[in-house]
Amino acid sequence: MSHGHEDHSSHIKEYWWVFAALMFFTGLTVAVWGWFDFGRPGFSAGDCVVGLLIACVKASLVGLIFMHLREERGLIYKILVFTFYFFAALMFLCLFALSDPIRPVFGVNL
């Protein structure tokens, strides 16, 4: 990073704000576990979605601010976009294979 020294001191404040936000979201995640129930009582798809959404928000905060992705060069983004494409391919095609809508043959997922 090619900023001067003054820039950094202004960043420090920002880092602490992000820290506070992350703490808040951690608390929220635990709260989702303990108090709120989306959909069915206990664990359910609703909890799952909300829990993961919060995790995504936290992850973006860490990525954008702490890992400086906000001010990073396009090249890094390209690498990351590739990676997430392949990761998504791995996870969702596996899931697709597991719960294929057209499955008349054996009826059982092995």
């Binding site: 995790a55 992850a59 890992m67």
Partner: peptide, 25 residues
């Protein structure tokens, strides 16, 4: 330190996802 820190943030990032799926789901 920046490079080491990037790795460290990544480790943190993984835990952010591990926590809900291992403990809360």
């Amino acid at each position: 330190v920046e490079v080491g820190g990037l790795f460290w943030h990544f480790v943190d990032l993984v835990w952010i996802f591990l926590f809900p799926i291992m403990y809360l789901m």
